[in-house]
Design a protein around this nucleic acid. Structure first.
Lengths: 206, 206
DNA sequence: ACTCTTTTTAAACAAATGTTTAAATAACTT
DNA sequence: AAGTTATTTAAACATTTGTTTAAAAAGAGT
């Protein structure tokens, strides 16, 4: 057939949309089929099952996610500048894909990911040499002495959470999408200043 | 009958456990019945439906959540001390109920909460006078000039996210539960120092 | 035009879902 | 002990679930 443009891609796009908004358990394959404007059997014709389709979407999401990080880490900047740039880029990225952090964390929490994320996620980042750069910066006293894991938690908390809690924040403060958007911009500025100051203290002791 | 101790409570406990770990969509009423060690019909006898039961659990979770905040805000301390205490208490609370942040945010995201959270959540906090205290602290220059909403986002990000991303962090760094626990303690210390320094700058400009 | 393969569909499948029914069992009242 | 109510159960219910089947439709090759 080759109807118009790859049906396979259309299904993937629809599945992504539905999975992202409703979650794996929260949607049926018929929901996705309806979004495609087609039949349920077609999904299993192209992808073997609902689970396989989800895994594909999940891996794609992780890949997109990873991409935006790698770009920054691969750049030729000092760690302080990389940190600042990372926060900027991540915010820009999540502004366009606000459902992504929730989607990923939820999928991992429910073990919907067959393989561990470590090899597909940790290693590509390590290859950018960012961890080595971090070690050196700490050795030179340019950066606060704290574990890589705690740096990660600190960064991710401030960058991911605001997008995961959009609805909660809106309901809690009774604000609309546009106002929240402004708050997110303000948050980005706060996070940048706060984190940079904390991670790279200007008057380090002794 | 009054078999042993309130069947109703046993069902609620089981439902809480199952809903927390698997989510509303991720579990069936039979999962809950099995956890109780009883029949499905019993759930609908005490609670009208799966949805009603969930709402009850959700409201209970929100209430517990709120309780731990109110306590701190109602205390007779300066804002700086309250902030520090809040972070401590919240961390202690989530150490014992690590699924709670995810559960609440997920429920709100999927509109599983009938009523808006604002009245049940915002107002009790406002009644502690914390917002007024905050305004005054900012007027006196003791606290950084930033919106209540951004303060909220900043605090919640650093306190909630680490518990929501437990599995992700574990997989990413390849660490066990005990190690993560230590990281969370370290994170608490970092957050306290970082946030206090940022929210209450010692050398405020002009 | 005819064949062969690929794509799409409607229908059916068994299993699982939330809920209800009616009967059984236990507890309470007198 | 008998009668009444409250609790618990097994079974059935109508839908919905993910998946499969077999036929129809569309494309490509000759």
């Amino acid at each position: 057939m080759k109807r118009d443009l790859s049906t396979e891609e259309k299904i993937k796009a629809a599945a992504k949309k539905v999975f992202m908004t409703k979650g794996f358990d929260g949607c049926s394959v018929r929901d996705i089929a309806k979004e495609v404007g087609s039949n349920v059997a077609l999904l299993n014709y192209y992808f073997r099952s609902k689970e396989k389709l989800f895994e594909l979407i999940f891996e794609g999401a992780m890949s997109d996610f990873l991409q935006s990080i790698i770009e920054v880490f691969s750049s030729d900047l000092a760690l302080k500048e990389k940190t600042s740039l990372l926060i900027d880029k991540e915010f820009d990225f999540f502004m366009e894909h606000p459902e992504l952090p929730m989607f990923i964390i939820q999928a991992i929490q429910q073990n919907k990911n067959e393989s561990s994320v470590a090899p597909t996620f940790f290693e590509p980042i390590e290859k950018t040499g960012i961890f080595q750069q971090l070690k050196e910066a700490q050795a030179k006293g340019e950066m606060r002495q704290m574990s890589l894991r705690n740096i990660t938690i600190l960064l991710m908390s401030n960058v991911h959470y605001p997008f995961m809690s959009k609805k909660l924040t809106q309901q809690f403060h009774g604000i609309d999408e546009a106002t929240l958007q402004q708050d997110l911009f303000a948050h980005k500025a706060h996070v940048k200043e706060m984190l940079i100051n904390y991670l790279f203290p200007q008057n380090q002791p002794a």
